[in-house]
Nucleic acid binder design. Sequence first.
DNA 1: GCATAATGTAGAACAAGTTTCAGACTTGAT
DNA 2: ATCAAGTCTGAAACTTGTTCTACATTATGC
Lengths: 207, 207
Amino acid sequence: MTAEVKAVTTSASPPLTERQEARRRRILHASAQLASRGGFDAVQMREVAEAAGVALGTLYRYFPSKVHLLVATMQDQLQHMHTTLRKRPPAGDDPAARVAETLMRAFRALQREPQLADAMVRALTFADRSVSPEVDTVSRLTTAIILDAMGLEKPPTAEQLSAVRVIEHTWHSALITWLSGRASIAQVKIDIETVCRLIDLTSPEKA
Amino acid sequence: MTAEVKAVTTSASPPLTERQEARRRRILHASAQLASRGGFDAVQMREVAEAAGVALGTLYRYFPSKVHLLVATMQDQLQHMHTTLRKRPPAGDDPAARVAETLMRAFRALQREPQLADAMVRALTFADRSVSPEVDTVSRLTTAIILDAMGLEKPPTAEQLSAVRVIEHTWHSALITWLSGRASIAQVKIDIETVCRLIDLTSPEKA
DNA sequence: GCATAATGTAGAACAAGTTTCAGACTTGAT
DNA sequence: ATCAAGTCTGAAACTTGTTCTACATTATGC
């Protein structure tokens, strides 16, 4: 279980030495720490570097921009969440209910660290083309979590994958409206439940 | 038709003199111009001020941040689009098809100015709480466009409004994936069509 | 018309993300 | 053990969003 997670961490690129792995970890830790305090704005590159005990130039060698750093931080947090969620799979009867339950669980986790959520989600949606590979990794992780929650026996159909894409869209955008204070927690819940109905609509038995 | 649009432009706040209205318009024009060239990054406050022929301090009096400026720019563009769309309403048979058609039309309009779209959408999703009112206005405009496209005879049900919210979420998020090069135009089309199926699911006759 | 408050201007100053560079330290191959 | 290549450090410089200041212009109530 842990082994697989490791494999996803970062594909390709030359393997890091132990000291480098440790530096990378300190940086990500500092980033999450500062983000938890004051959100996106509180993650200041100079402060991250100092808190992690590396020079500013080194920080930029590991993460070529603030957005890269925060997206990597999100990757990191998502992996934790994925393994946590796997330990207690959702209990709903149908796939739609299970996905909704899983996403609401993730949402409650984010509510415990709203500032961290702010930093990560804002970075994710602000990311431009230069961050595409990293954002894609996050997206694949999210997809994996949702597919896991669906608990399908067979591989998903193209239609089901489309539904999952739309669920992801809704998830991200609903989070943003919540983080910027334009939607309540209750509203996000409704949005998630609404979009999850697409799963029933695309389940093979239906048609 | 034009009268109503005027009313939405900016609610409350003291009425502007003619010269002020003209300044505001020059600023928005400069903003859109620069955005069309190089997207979000190309909209530099000093350049906007110069192109609009106002002092930097004045620009900040009219729009308290770059994000405010770009969200206002989006408001402006959306209003154009709304009136344009109204002239030729979508022709589909059911509400879902009409909404999908309308959004695809809007999407094609954005494709003609991808850099401008980039600037506006990035600003919209990056906006923090201080921009909530303005972002909300954009959101209401978008909702209005979608409801228009549905062409309902009766006022929408709560369920239908939920569906519209989810459609909006998908619309924004799909745009972002397209703008950051992570999804093709075809993929966005599929996502829009997929989410629009929610409309059938929530139409009163169904239940 | 005039006093005055609000608005606009030019330009300096400040903050935080990013780049650059010279020199010290590690690492890996020989 | 040693040399070359690559990495890290510290510090300064540069960019662009934002704020501030001193002064000029405009609008408004009397």
